[in-house]
């Protein structure tokens, strides 16, 4: 079994952009049609047997979610990272729950926090951290947390600021403003 995934990248019939290549670290970006094929071949041919994490970046400016799957080989701790872009509206991403059981939990969290659908994941609609959440998913960048916080929990109590000069001037009636020292007097 070859350990480095360069071979997969050169053998594949589709376009792969290499983001960063290093000792034991390989980060590529592919189009979303080829994600499953690339990840499965990395598992079968390079021994990337652990799914460490699925992470999401909400790039609202480009109107996409950037999903990243981080795979690791437990024998030599080498890492293979696959990124792909998905549209923000009605985002639907293939599930890897039947290959790695941890993916079921990662995908449940992403569904709750970003509203991403994972068709085929049996537990994606269960509550993960939030209980009975009915609003827009809170980690999406178009969700206004301050507005929600004020609407639900009330406005925070403001701090009281007191300027000592103003306070002394009001109570004693006089305040000598200290003159800053000139440079030649120092």
């Amino acid at each position: 079994m070859e350990k480095q995934p360069q071979r997969i990248v050169s053998d594949s019939g589709f376009e792969i952009e290499v983001v960063r290549k290093d000792e034991g670290y390989f980060h590529v970006r592919v189009s979303r049609a080829n994600v499953i094929e690339l990840i499965l071949s990395a598992k079968q041919r390079c021994g990337k047997n652990i799914l460490q994490l699925i992470s999401v970046v909400d790039r609202i400016e480009d109107d996409i979610f950037q999903l990243t799957w981080i795979l690791e080989d437990t024998a030599d701790s080498s890492v293979f990272i696959v990124s792909a872009d998905y549209p923000r509206e009605n985002c639907s991403v293939p599930t890897f729950g039947d290959i790695w059981p941890t993916a079921v939990i990662f995908e449940r969290e992403l569904h709750e926090m970003y509203g991403i659908e994972f068709p085929g994941n049996p537990r994606q609609y269960e509550d993960f951290l939030l209980e009975g959440w009915k609003e827009l998913p809170p980690m999406r960048r178009d969700f206004d947390t301050l507005e929600y916080s004020i609407r639900t929990y009330g406005e925070r109590r403001k701090r009281i600021h007191t300027d000592p000069r103003k306070f002394i001037a009001e109570t004693t009636g006089e305040w000598d403003t200290p003159v800053p020292m000139k440079d030649e007097d120092r």
Binding site: L130, E135, P138, F143, T145, L146, Y148, S149, Y153, G154, E155, R156, R157
Partner: peptide
């Protein structure tokens, strides 16, 4: 204070 999940004023 602007979190979606933490209370602002406890004694309510």
């Amino acid at each position: 204070y602007d979190s979606y999940n933490t209370l602002n004023i406890l004694d309510r």
